[in-house]
Design a protein around this nucleic acid. Structure first.
Length: 804
RNA sequence: GGGCGUGUAGCUCAGCGGGAGAGCGCCCGCUUCACACGCGGGAGGUCACUGGUUCGAUCCCAGUCACGCCCACCA
């Protein structure tokens, strides 16, 4: 007889059945209170990683739990077009073919991208199916769907109408590899070993010189000033004079600005507004010119004189040579500092001045911040709300344009007079001058500009659909910490502005799943473990259980042990069901019999009900998994099933009927976490009409019994018995339990009852001391003290009876 | 420079004012008719360190040391 539970075939079969029978389908006209979650849209190009699997598991628990309680559930799936990531993939291919996107041209590039996606994109939904995620796959949406693009355009036009959208020529994070601007939030700072170069700038009047320190000599060509701290005594007299920039020999003013750190380097800062963010600010405040010497490709540009076209390395060498020749190179020392890199291409970010579209976020951020503060949107864990709040309160303009081709092209058109027309669909004439020769903006939107609309654009917004009416606002959004600003906060802002409501009331921030060595899981580091492989090895139920069990509010290291625990749990459940079902043919489940074992197990399940319900409601998924494990293993299998085993063999009808009823109940609790194995067992139960997946959750408060059976004393006695090996006086029923559960071989043959009893006396005495302490008694609530007293008195009585 | 967080059994982690816990691993014993992915028993911890608050501290407070992560324009 095969006694091992094999999830493989079972899970695939149920996944197909559930979907085919439409259990995941959301119908706005169906009965039941709505409950909806929008799955954070994964990148079309992506693969399911551990973080996705964990996040999907937590959301699936919530969805299945609500479905089982009769809610009308929608779990909305879909993909994000991930413009910059997709660019990276396609452009890598082009590079390998010896070409690039500019040679290929925009139209061909976009066409190629669609084609590539058709073939290789969108594999995650299949992986989520394999995990058992109960998404309504028939409603898959994509941020590049026509309808979705219309929503994005509506958003932009709306913001434009509010007067919050503008174009500006500012310094931005430019990625020379991706050839686009990049958001502050997508720049990762890493320590880099550079050289700090001290350079002497002669004064124009020949009266001396001032020295500066720089890590980027090529930017010297773009210097438009030298700045010192206004209170720096060393340089006070130089402010207002002019210095001569080396190599280009340009005369520039020496200005005073408090942003200069007098303690750094020489205390004098060269100002290059074209290539440094701080310098840009200082430059604007002092009305300095903005000179750019490095181009969009990262090479020296036409303003670099004879260095035009040179790489920065070449330029640096030439400039250093020049400085040496002119005796203006004072020092060059190694220097480690943090430098921004593009998160996608890993290229070093080049701060550059370019014209971009911006959104003024101030009025958008205020309601979102207010919602967090007032608790209308609640974060779990709570401190993450504080993090979001801080960001919202220091909100800065959002650069929403990207110089890419894959994405929603910005709906702004320019006429030859330089007027701009913003519209949801292509206008025939300029809104200002009526000219017909219009040219559409070349840029596309930042990916997050479109994903900000996800919870409602997927439901048909801006059309007033029935879906929107029923399922919006959604209930929960669950995601990782790294996109709180990029995504969560922006959904809140867009949701409030466009729909008048926060798009969800709960934000769950799940833990980051790290590799077992504590580093991030990553393919390049070889530290990644694919959920797919884990499911193949252990089953989807075990994987879901394991991920939930290891999750917490902290980052966690992936450890196989938890998954194995899940597999054991599934196997255990499978086997205990076989034990009961083997003898239960034709038996009707019933909870009326009240033998001691039944009473005990009923009480345990009632406690489990409370803990399961409570932990799901408060999003404590690790606690949920723990409660399920203990209830199944310790209570149901080790205690209860062992105790009633002889009666099952005797086909005692009470034991059979009750154990069936209790097993049903246990399956219901386990189903949200381990749907496949529970449904498999459920269908084997006699007289099943409903599916476990739909509304079989115990109602209304789920208690079997109103009163707790009086077995506390037996448990205490059993504990003393177990510890001491002494014999306890028991009535007949109690002895039966003891014989079944506390087996003879559990009693230590060489145990010393006298010493054990002494130890227990000591413990009780310590507790009595506490109760005798006036200050404790004065502070503790009366009923607590009273309860403790009674408990202790009982323990002592039992113990002394035992000893005597 | 700010902010958040973590240091508990060999490993991964719970617990967070009154008896130090789980799973895995380890040791001993079990071919007991659901399960050896099992059953029973057991070893293993000055709960990072120092001080404070308290009748009582792994838990609260302060500091120290180590390690994460996030935000910020240090050339």
């Amino acid at each position: 007889m095969n006694s091992l539970y094999n999830p493989k075939g079972v899970e695939e079969r149920w996944q197909q059945t559930w979907e085919a029978e439409g259990h995941y389908r959301a119908d706005p006209e169906a009965p039941g209170e709505p409950f909806s979650i929008a799955l954070p849209p994964p990148n079309v190009t992506g693969n399911l990683h551990m973080g996705h699997a964990l996040n999907a598991s937590t959301q699936d628990v919530l969805n299945r739990w609500h479905r089982m309680r009769g809610f009308n559930v929608l779990w909305q799936p879909g993909y994000d077009h991930a413009s910059i990531s997709v660019h990276a993939v396609i452009e890598r291919q082009l590079l390998a073919e010896g070409t690039n996107r500019f040679e290929l041209g925009r139209e061909a590039f976009v066409e190629r991208t669609w084609k590539w996606l058709e073939e290789y994109g969108g594999i995650i939904m299949g992986q989520l199916r394999k995990l058992g995620a109960s998404l309504d796959y028939s409603r898959e949406r994509f941020t590049m769907d026509d309808a979705y693009i219309r929503a994005v355009y509506r958003f932009f036009v709306h913001l434009h109408g509010r007067g919050w959208v503008y174009k500006d020529n500012r310094i931005v994070n430019w990625c020379p590899g991706c050839r686009t601007s990049v958001s502050d939030l997508e720049v990762a700072y890493r320590d880099v070993d550079d050289a700090l170069t001290r350079v002497r700038y002669p004064l124009a009047d020949g009266s001396g010189s001032i020295s500066i320190a720089t890590v980027r000599p090529p930017t010297i060509l773009g210097d438009v000033a030298v700045a010192v701290h206004p209170e720096d005594e060393r340089y006070r007299e130089l402010v207002g004079k002019e210095a001569v920039v080396p190599y280009v020999e340009r005369q520039v003013p020496i200005v005073a600005d408090a942003r200069v750190d007098p303690a750094f380097g020489t205390g004098a800062l060269k100002i290059t507004p074209g290539h440094d963010a701080t310098d840009f600010e200082i430059g604007r405040d002092h009305a300095l010119p903005e000179l750019t010497v490095i181009g969009l490709d990262g090479r020296m540009n036409e303003h670099a004189g004879d260095l035009a076209g040179a790489t920065q390395e070449e330029a640096e060498t030439r400039i250093l040579d020049w400085l040496r020749e002119h005796d203006q190179l004072e020092a060059r020392e190694s220097y480690r500092h943090s430098v921004g890199h593009c998160e996608r291409s890993k290229d070093r970010i080049e701060p550059l001045i370019t014209e971009q579209w911006y959104v003024d976020m101030r009025e958008l951020a205020a309601p979102a911040a207010a919602a967090i503060r007032a608790g209308g949107v609640k974060f779990t864990p709570a401190n993450q709300g504080g993090v979001a709040l801080e960001w919202l309160e220091k909100i800065r303009p959002w650069n929403i344009s990207r110089q890419l081709w894959w994405g929603q092209r910005i709906p702004a058109w320019y006429c030859p007079h330089g007027h701009t027309t913003v519209a949801e669909s292509e206008p025939s004439t300029c809104a200002e001058c009526g000219r017909a020769e219009l040219r559409q903006d070349e840029d596309v939107f930042d990916t997050w500009f479109s994903s900000a609309l996800w919870p409602f654009a997927t439901l048909g917004w801006p059309e007033q659909t029935r879906e929107l009416e029923v399922y919006y606002p959604t209930d929960v959004v669950s995601t990782a910490r790294d996109i709180i600003f990029l995504w969560v906060a922006r959904m809140m802002m867009a949701g409030q502005e466009l729909t008048g409501a926060m798009p969800f009331h709960d934000v769950i921030i799940h833990s980051l799943v790290l590799a077992s060595d504590g580093r991030r899981m990553s393919k390049s580091l070889g530290t990644g473990i694919e959920p797919d492989d884990v499911i193949d090895q252990y089953g989807a139920d075990a994987t879901r259980y394991g991920l939930l069990k290891m999750s917490s509010t902290q980052d966690v290291r992936f450890s196989q042990g938890f998954i194995e625990e899940g597999r054991k749990l599934a196997n255990k459940l499978w086997n205990v069901a076989r034990l009961i079902l083997a003898n239960a043919e034709g038996v009707k489940p019933d909870t009326r019999p009240q033998a001691f074992e039944e009473q005990w197990m009923i009480a345990r399940l009632d406690e489990a009900h409370a803990e399961v319900t409570d932990s799901i409601a408060s999003f404590e998924f690790a606690r949920l998994a723990g409660a399920l494990y203990r209830t199944t293993f310790d209570d149901f299998c080790d205690w209860y099933a062992e105790a009633i085993k002889p009666r099952l063999y005797d086909r005692d009808p009470d034991a059979l009927a009750t154990s069936l009823a209790l097993l049903e109940r246990l399956l219901a609790y386990l189903h949200p976490v381990m749907p496949h194995v529970t449904e498999e067992i459920w269908t084997a139960l006699p007289d099943r009409r409903n599916r476990l997946i739909r509304a079989p959750w115990p109602k209304p408060d789920g208690r079997f019994s109103e009163t707790q059976p009086p077995f506390e004393e037996i448990r205490n006695a059993a504990e003393i018995f177990r510890r001491s090996g002494a014999i306890v006086e028991l009535d007949e029923e109690q002895r039966r339990i003891f014989e079944a559960v506390v087996k003879p071989d559990r009693v230590r043959a060489d145990g010393d009852p006298t010493a054990e009893i002494e130890r227990l006396r000591g413990e009780i005495a310590r507790a009595e001391d506490m109760l005798g302490n006036e200050r404790f008694v004065a502070r503790a609530p009366e009923d607590v003290v009273e309860a403790e007293r009674e408990k202790l008195a009982r323990y002592r009585r039992e113990l002394e009876a035992l000893a005597g």
